[in-house]
Design a protein around this nucleic acid. Sequence first.
DNA 1: GACCCGCCCTGATCTGGATCAACCGTACCC
DNA 2: GGGTACGGTTGATCCAGATCAGGGCGGGTC
Lengths: 254, 254
Amino acid sequence: MTFSIATIAAANVATPPMPAPQPRTAGTVTGRCAGCSARSKGLCGALAAGDLPDLSTTSRPLDLLSATPVVMEGEEADAVFTVMSGMLKLYKTLPDGRQQITGFATAGDVIGLTVGTGYAYTAETVTASTVCRMPRTALRRLMERHPAVQGRLLAMTSVELLAAQDQILLLGCKTAVERVSSFLLALSRRSRPLADGTPSVFLPMPKVDIGAYLGLRPETLSRVLRKLEVAGAITRLTNDRIRIEDPVALEAAA
Amino acid sequence: MTFSIATIAAANVATPPMPAPQPRTAGTVTGRCAGCSARSKGLCGALAAGDLPDLSTTSRPLDLLSATPVVMEGEEADAVFTVMSGMLKLYKTLPDGRQQITGFATAGDVIGLTVGTGYAYTAETVTASTVCRMPRTALRRLMERHPAVQGRLLAMTSVELLAAQDQILLLGCKTAVERVSSFLLALSRRSRPLADGTPSVFLPMPKVDIGAYLGLRPETLSRVLRKLEVAGAITRLTNDRIRIEDPVALEAAA
DNA sequence: GACCCGCCCTGATCTGGATCAACCGTACCC
DNA sequence: GGGTACGGTTGATCCAGATCAGGGCGGGTC
């Protein structure tokens, strides 16, 4: 039986870099958020520097090993999490165990938002990650005190909705080759090119997870990647990095 | 060539009940929104009765025939529409013409919301419908004047996101029988049962549209409905109405 | 009335991706 | 080192749903 850290905060937390619970001295606490790498992203970007104490007193960073559940579908949603580093997968599960990954979360993404009382999906780290936990009550208070937070929340939710509708189009209409090509292109737009300028994508998650995101079996994904490689559209540098050789060809395939 | 009424307001508007542009007499205008059947839903539900003039002066109802486009994917998003009656389909189109319906909109739903400058999908009536048009600038002003509107917007967007994620699960994992069963159950939860108390669903849209929503061909949909009928789970009363005979069996199939 | 057209249904066949099975390379552990 | 477990790849086969084809029916028009 696994428990999510939403309810059992001590589970699966990496030992060395976890900061011990800090006293609420304003100085220390403001400094923590001020130096945060995700400071300008997520919900926190909606706040001015002067408002940081409101964040620091309620939020707490957590360093997590890979394969650690953060929130569990259906569990009571008592906190939201901002990803500071690493990558998580978000997925839904059918009663018989089939899983559909609805998205991957990286730095700046906020997970655990919900309209009801329970989380809508399970979130689990795919690499070692750092997330920042904020209780739901604190988020509510933050929204009341800072209307800009609500606006940011609306903008983020709208962007997620757009992405979800694109995914619906992908799953409902596209072939395996089109799905993989679309996926690689979408990732390459969000990542830095290699030193020589050619675009590349980093795939830290296992192939079975990419398949579960695209509605494909890992065998099919493997075959499609090989086909794209033979066609000269991509090169597989390592198991977790692909170089895009011909973005135009990929675009045509997507 | 078709044009959406977002840009050409006079096209495809039904002749008789279309109210002529009204003078801005506060009385008339407040009355229009006060008597609106969608008054408590959509964005308008976030406003108190005293604030109705803010709505009435900027919104305008439109009666539309079936198969009328309201917004077109990619077109400049200069207005949002609240559905007052009827039904619309929302869909995305691939370059080669394949279409994926992302949802159906009924009374109270708001269409045309977007984060960017262009609409994210095409919306088209499937039955004769009445929608209420509000320019985007008016919505922006309304949000500034009434913070509750923004909250309502956030709630509505979040609910849509949940629905989109459920649809991703459906398209990514489920079989044809599971998709159709899930669809019928979801609809039956939102509709009134028949006079004798048994639940039923109303399907005014053509079968090809239901298929495009569920990621199935119409032939497959037809076969699945027949199979469910033979199994005793449903009865097809007319072409556009189905009675749910055995909700438990449907639940099991979904 | 006769005709047409769009929607729906049903049967026959095809196929893209799933499934089943085997193998390989790498990481980890004793 | 050897053993083992896991992720990834490849090949062979299968099948759910797509595609192709034909026919029925109801509504609209002349």
